[in-house]
Simulated scan of single mutants.
Amino acid sequence: MKKALLILICVSMLSACSKGEEDLYSYTFSKNSKVTSESFEGSYMRHGKVVRGANLVFEYVFVKDDVENIADDEYSEFIYFEIDPSLDEFNYVDEELNTINTVFTQSCFCAFFEEEKNVAPTGSISGKKISETQWDITIDVIFYGDEARNINNRFQLKD
């Protein structure tokens, strides 16, 4: 009986340590928008923001599951870019990524001071319109010289 009680207590403790949450991914786009970005002195990280404008803005969001008992472990990342709303299909490569205001932002308790990482993104972003509310988007880009992201998903119109 003591052995069974001890096992039950151990299992209860292990399950109490697990939040049961999962990482969050979001793939959306907005009409009548544009991307703005800023960086802060001494940091290579650009911080993107979606504001009112005339384009379609695509937004990928990743939010890492937070471990409740660990301080400052929060992490999220965002990729933004914009295209002309008249397009039904597109493919932008390397230097062209700057023309669509491609921005990768990490949000965490991290330092972004390495000046050599202050470089333009390389790779490609392509997409095909499925309907007025859906696009198939492929992002295969290296940001800041070594932050590779490969995303292939359907983006939904944001409410």
Rank of each mutant, 00 (worst) to 15 (best):
V67N: 12
S86L: 15
F112L: 07
C108R: 01
I79L: 10
H47I: 13
E82R: 08
Y44R: 09
S124A: 07
F81G: 03
V63L: 02
D66V: 09
S39I: 05
N98D: 06
A120N: 15
F40C: 09
V103P: 03
K117Y: 06
Y92L: 08
H47Y: 15
F112H: 04
E74D: 08
K64V: 03
A54D: 15
L56N: 01
C108S: 06
E82I: 00
C110H: 08
D88W: 08
D73M: 07
V63K: 10
Q106P: 11
P121M: 11
T99Q: 12
N118F: 14
E116R: 14
F78V: 05
F40W: 06
I79H: 04
K49V: 10
V67I: 15
I70Y: 10
M45W: 06
K64P: 02
T102G: 13
E74R: 07
I83K: 06
E96Q: 15
M45P: 08
P85S: 11
S126C: 09
F62L: 15
L56I: 05
V63S: 04
A54P: 07
S43N: 15
N91Q: 13
G48Q: 06
K117A: 00
A71S: 12
A54W: 09
P121Y: 05
V57L: 03
E95T: 15
G53C: 11
M45E: 00
T102S: 10
N118K: 14
F58T: 05
Y92C: 05
I125N: 00
E96C: 11
P121F: 09
L87S: 14
V51C: 15
Y60G: 01
D66M: 04
V119D: 07
V63R: 11
G123I: 06
P121L: 07
N91F: 09
T99P: 00
T102Q: 10
I125V: 09
Y80A: 00
E116T: 14
T102W: 11
E41F: 14
F113Y: 11
D65R: 03
I70E: 09
S76K: 01
E59P: 04
N98F: 03
A120Y: 13
E96S: 06
G48T: 03
G53S: 12
T105I: 02
D66P: 04
